[in-house]
Amino acid sequence: MPPRSPPLPPTDPSLRAPARGTLAQPAPRYDSEVRAWEHDGWDLPEEEHLRRREVSVERPRSVIAWNQSPDLGFDRAVNSYRGCEHGCIYCYARPSHAYLGLSPGLDFETKLIARPDAARVLEKELARKSYVVRPMGLGTNTDPWQPIEAQYRVTRAVLEVLWNWRHPVSITTRGALIERDIDLLGPMAAEGLTEVGISVTTLDAGLARAMEPRAPSPARRLAMIRALSAAGVPVRLMMGPVIPGLTDHEIEALMDAGREAGAKTAWYALLRLPREVSPLFQDWLARHRPNHAGKVMKLLREMRGGRDNDPDFHSRFRGEGPYADLLRARVVAARRRLGYAQTLPALDCGKFRPPPRPGDQLSLF
């Protein structure tokens, strides 16, 4: 039998962190030591400790992250932040916090890192003679429009650079703050330079609040689709992740709601539980949806070859087996019934050029 994820260490009962996905703090996998709370045997009241958000600043030397994954629609991306305050318990990016010596648990949601120089560094990278334009991914690891963007405006600055260079960009977000930047996204979309994926996991506001505690409500995300669509921005409804035994019954309702809001195409991905995400998610199930826990993990393992997670290209997004085939068939049928496009038009890479500088000779054409 494939190995199961180890249990989480006990959580400090005096710790308070309202509206967070988890209070657990499993040690980063690269640490040689494991830290865990243990009761000291004294039945005495302890002072409560409130965990607040902390934001550090990183000054990167490069910001374009490259990949060679054959099942992604891009080979490069920019991430404005590390960590994500939305706190989605299932987030596949949680393990990336281990590279910083931080826990993929509560640290991922509360110890955030902003990259205020990202736009300046990106412009230098785009200006290299060796740079060959292809669509850029934005929001591929953590959400570029998470709440701290209101203060740091890193994503806004990155978007301005991409627009100035006429660089195509494919966006993924569930952050309502994206509406602030419609003044850029609208003109970019008019030139075939951008499309936006809005992630909607469930229409159940209570479930969303528990799973994605600081992300906008489902209704608010549908309103984002309407606002972007009204501005001429092509929108993908992103049903990611579909959680078997918990949210998969909503596929058709989600696609109906997304189409009514103006989404042009719909995409889905099966729940992924890489590394530390599996014990965190299973702990969340036990606490918030105990009656669903057994069914969720049983179905998921059936689609993952008996494992909690399947990292293989292509199958990692869809799963394998009869139940995975059924999910796929339902999405295809609903897509056809609702008139969704199979894909969005390809982004235009032919308009890429250095922005004009003061004193440059203007073109006649």
Rank of each mutant, 00 (worst) to 15 (best):
P6V: 09
P6C: 10
L8A: 14
S14M: 06
P18E: 06
P18R: 07
A19F: 10
R20Q: 07
Q25K: 14
P26N: 08
S32A: 13
W37M: 09
E38K: 05
R52W: 03
S56W: 12
E58W: 04
C91T: 03
Y92H: 00
A93S: 01
P95E: 05
P116Q: 03
A119H: 09
R120K: 06
L122A: 04
L122F: 07
S130E: 15
M136R: 00
N141V: 13
T142R: 02
D143F: 00
E149V: 02
A157G: 10
V161R: 02
S170C: 05
G175C: 03
I178H: 04
D181W: 05
G192V: 02
E195C: 15
A208S: 14
P216F: 04
S217D: 06
R226G: 04
A227Q: 12
S229D: 08
L237D: 06
L237T: 11
V242W: 05
T247H: 05
D248K: 04
E252C: 07
R259D: 14
G262R: 05
E276V: 15
R304Q: 08
D308A: 14
N309E: 03
F317P: 08
E320R: 07
E320F: 00
Y323A: 04
A346R: 12
C349A: 15
F365C: 11
